[in-house]
Design a protein around this nucleic acid. Structure first.
Lengths: 196, 196
DNA sequence: ACCTGAACACCGTTCAAGT
DNA sequence: ACCTGAACACCGTTCAAGT
């Protein structure tokens, strides 16, 4: 990549992060280009689609999440690991409002620039689920796809301003649909107000 | 209302139903007007916002749902009534793709034309939930708002093309988060493939 | 190689002018 | 009373012309 192109790339990513933080996943591409003092066509040249832009914006976060899954697998008991990771994954989609719609459609569309990230999340979750199922602490009648679905649904839910305040409680409700064990009470990640 | 206005109103509603069925909740208003052989401004005069249009499109469906709740309350045991209605409510939001986003934001916005419908659903569900809770078959630590949240989440989920095929199974998963009783097996509305 | 302005076909909002 | 065309300020896509 030429020097000026490289500079544009990093600058655009930086500006895009700001704009998207402020306006959510359906921020105007034109607006991003404008704020970066660059032609709209230049932005589109670096990121041909909105998905391509978000792939760049979310890559590191998604990688972290995959690593965390691997770590949890060695450090925590299966049920706790599954729930802790599930919580992290939901938090991840909240970095920018509206990303879970993007992720959900990318999940179904192999040609999407976000498809790889989406699949990575799917796989990481599926591994943790299998581990918990082997132990008998997660429902036997669900698979990685169901887990991904519940994760997406919860992400969408807590992304709605009206439901955001009860995010922790809703997490508990969904969690109870995944685990066979009754409400867990000794998880580090669980916060006091979760029980209302 | 003047005769010509009345005629425009019904015709627009009819055309809107077709267009929205085809293109979902974020169909182009301009397109609806165009197909109705009417100026865009005329459409906007009858339905000043997208929410106002959907209020008209969904009114009868929402009313039916409220009635069904009342009927179920007298004809079915609390847990079955709750689940059967929950299923109907999810089916309702599937009449046009994308309505649950509309409903969810209307729920938080009292000035939305859809706010009344949203509140009606909320109340109908809350009554059925209380009844099941009194009996002890529904989780005690959730309220009408949680039920509405889970309903919205499941609606959003099955509205995603990738998850639509496992709608029944996902319904079962969410249902297990609501009821204290284990998987119900004798519900008329339950279909065989729900268990995969 | 990379950038850019401009043309294009859209969108919803608003309003003065028509019947 | 009710309708309408047109102007407006947007949007993302595409591409010929520039450096």
């Amino acid at each position: 990549m030429r020097a000026d192109a490289q500079k544009n790339y990093s600058h655009l990513l930086e500006v895009a992060r700001d704009v998207v933080t402020e306006h959510g996943a359906d921020a105007s591409m034109r607006d991003i280009a404008r704020r970066a003092d660059v032609g709209l066509a230049t932005l589109l040249r670096h990121f041909p689609t909105r998905e391509a832009l978000f792939e760049a914006l979310l890559r590191t976060n998604a990688d972290t999440l995959t690593q965390q899954a691997a770590e949890l697998e060695t450090t925590s008991p299966p049920d706790e690991a599954l729930l802790a990771w599930f919580r992290e994954a939901v938090a991840f989609t909240r970095t920018y409002s509206g990303v879970c719609d993007l992720m959900a459609s990318a999940h179904a569309d192999p040609s999407s620039a976000l498809h790889a990230s989406s699949t990575a999340l799917h796989s990481a979750g599926a591994r943790l689920l299998l581990r918990a199922q082997a132990e008998g602490t997660a429902r036997a009648d669900m698979d990685g796809e169901d887990l991904f679905a519940l994760m997406s649904a919860l992400s969408w839910l807590v992304g709605q301003p009206s439901f955001a305040p009860r995010a922790d409680h809703l997490f508990q409700l969904i969690a109870s649909a995944i685990l066979t064990t009754s409400p867990i009470s000794d998880m580090k990640t669980q916060r006091a107000e979760s029980d209302r």
